[in-house]
Design a protein around this nucleic acid. Structure first.
Lengths: 154, 154
DNA sequence: TTCCTAGTTAAGAATCATTCTTATCTGAGT
DNA sequence: ACTCAGATAAGAATGATTCTTAACTAGGAA
């Protein structure tokens, strides 16, 4: 989900049967802009406050919930204490650093295919799979440098 | 981790450099007995209270933390609001039902091998992988029945 | 355009999960 | 049995989230 105009956001809200309020528009915008950083409700709230001094934290919480229910956003599971959101609703995985609490996205079509194939060969009974994701847990070596994942040539 | 005697528990506590207190023993026992249900601190506390009327919730939290640090237990990530623990410290995955908040364990050597192979062909830079797990998210179809996973014959 | 109303919001209280503080207690080595 | 570092109970403090309620607004109807 990248760089939608306000009208496009307005439209996708209406499509989900939601009133296109100012609050919903700016929250959705903010999560999209913070794409990759997996913000908490508080993060969004702080980001919006300067330009929207009357917005309330409760509204941010409620709005994020609503978006999660309609599938416009995803909740990211993490070991930390607070809920975090992701504007990328595609299947992808996360690298979680227990030292810095960072969550790094990690998309790999090959891995996705591998898992789709695997689960098509398994039968999960009485359960409707909505999505899957892989979590790598561990620690950054150099807390100030970035984490990156690359293919090793065989 | 199954059906350890109190003396065996006592021993493994000492091996981890922890004093073998009554509280630690009963908490560890309870998590092991609740194996598969991924209890919260509150669950453990309620279970222990009748037989241990003076135990405090704070102690349960602290004890569970301590066990997680020493690797005797694992924290399970979930989308829900509270931390949950698992006495199974082996690599395994979880099926999470967003309707009932159930977490079902799911162990599959084949899947594990698949992932180990996959990640050995990737290079994750500046990150020390401590573990990985797969999460299937979705909904139970019949909330009263169990979820099961079986191999489909080709 | 104006009116109406169901749905939405702001504000703050309430609740829930977790951590912290401190005085007291206890396991285990001597 | 004595000692004391480490552990515990109790409850206060904190942090995250949800709830409540009165006021507000988007968007359809008149």
């Amino acid at each position: 989900m990248q760089h939608l105009t306000r009208d496009e956001i307005r439209q996708s809200l209406t499509e989900c049967g939601l009133k296109a309020t100012h609050q919903r528009i700016v929250v959705l915008e903010a999560v999209a802009e913070l794409h990759g950083s997996h913000p908490t409700a508080e993060d969004i709230f702080q980001r919006l406050r300067p330009a929207n001094p009357t917005i309330s934290l409760g509204t941010v919480y409620k709005t994020l919930d609503t978006f999660t229910e309609t599938g416009m956003l995803r909740r990211v599971v993490s070991e930390g204490g607070s809920k975090r959101y992701d504007s990328n609703t595609m299947t992808h995985s996360h690298i979680y650093c227990s030292k810095t609490k960072e969550i790094v996205d990690f998309e790999d079509k090959e891995l996705e295919q591998l898992l789709i194939k695997f689960f098509s060969e398994r039968q999960v009974e009485n359960f409707e799979i909505k999505g899957f994701s892989i979590q790598l847990t561990g620690c950054k070596v150099e807390p100030d440098k970035k984490i990156s994942i690359t293919r090793v040539s065989k």
